[in-house]
Design a protein around this nucleic acid. Sequence first.
DNA 1: TGCCATAAGAAACGTCAAGTTCTCTACCCA
DNA 2: TGGGTAGAGAACTTGACGTTTCTTATGGCA
Lengths: 207, 207
Amino acid sequence: MTTVSQTGKPTHDAVDHRKGPRRRGDALHAAIFEATLDELTAVGYAELKMEHVANRARASKGSLYRRWASRAELVADAVHYTIPSCAARPDTGNVREDLLGCLRGFATLLNGPSGEAIRGLMADTIRNPDLMEVVRARFIDPGVDLFLEVLRRGAARGEVRTTALTPRIASLGPDLLREYFLVHRPPIPDRALVEMVDDVIMPLIRA
Amino acid sequence: MTTVSQTGKPTHDAVDHRKGPRRRGDALHAAIFEATLDELTAVGYAELKMEHVANRARASKGSLYRRWASRAELVADAVHYTIPSCAARPDTGNVREDLLGCLRGFATLLNGPSGEAIRGLMADTIRNPDLMEVVRARFIDPGVDLFLEVLRRGAARGEVRTTALTPRIASLGPDLLREYFLVHRPPIPDRALVEMVDDVIMPLIRA
DNA sequence: TGCCATAAGAAACGTCAAGTTCTCTACCCA
DNA sequence: TGGGTAGAGAACTTGACGTTTCTTATGGCA
């Protein structure tokens, strides 16, 4: 098929979706999410271009910008859309194992394409501080809640001092993990997680 | 004064430094550093443009790129050049006060234009992971060394368990501070520093 | 003192992606 | 079945980056 552009230059299109089947609403939304994640996996956040996402989704840039004001918002939505339930919730009956299980779950996530995305989102936070609230609400606070729950179960079993059930203590795990994640190259080694639990958290919470 | 550009368009320049006094070497180097810091203070890292730094320094972009390959390298050098000696080294004879003093010193730094710059540099780390080593060597490792020294003095006075003299414990202060810095809007409240010391570090190191 | 290599200043250029706008048209619904 | 909505595709505008070119001031050296 041959069309002629406004400037008269002929372009040969494999498929012109002005004429082909055309998705709308949720179907298009989902297709863009999948394209975003594929692109994220393929080239990473830093090299992710709106135009490439559009092409991969067989959509137009206009459709993307109609829904999201920026790359950051698109990626935040796309990652949030696919993170299953923000990692598993281990319950082994032992606080140390539960804590380690949580950290390992997060680390696995951060070592994959979602980690790439979160790293990039935190970077964009500088140009757009409002994004920080979004990142915190979606990717940070849930982790603290999970740790607090683990500590409460431990306290119920008598493993954990009740005075350790504070936000400051509960967020130590997520904080140290994120800190490690942001300052070191991936992947996060398991040894670092064990140190966080055994050298910092356990001594602080032991009954 | 009026000059004629290559394309024949007349341009009216206040001063054309092809004819004016011309700095070289260290004088120019220093002028560029000062312009970088002024620009950082004025518009922040995200909005810092090489061209604007050049204009402010009354230098050319060419001169900048002859010395630094990127904005990140320029800013890293400029900030490092002006940080006095990476904060004071309190020695009050009391571990808790020393720790708090260190954290307050860093927090003051991070609440100013240097903090803006460091935040931005950490963001650029995503596009350029080599930068991470530079940031760590210049702005992170010195902090850990300082804390380790404070802990050693405390141990010598019998205030600190000798088993607490590990990198994991010594870097807790800088780690938690940086974590807070990266995830929250400035400024860092003093309350957060006190919590780090009293709820996390002190319980872990007490003899 | 005068010559010359070096490097600074200014401006233009090529590139690239962001974001916008335009036209055309498929799809949905009343 | 006809009209409004929204998607596809491409051109366009803008803005910054990093480079190149040309001119000329500066400092070292003979």
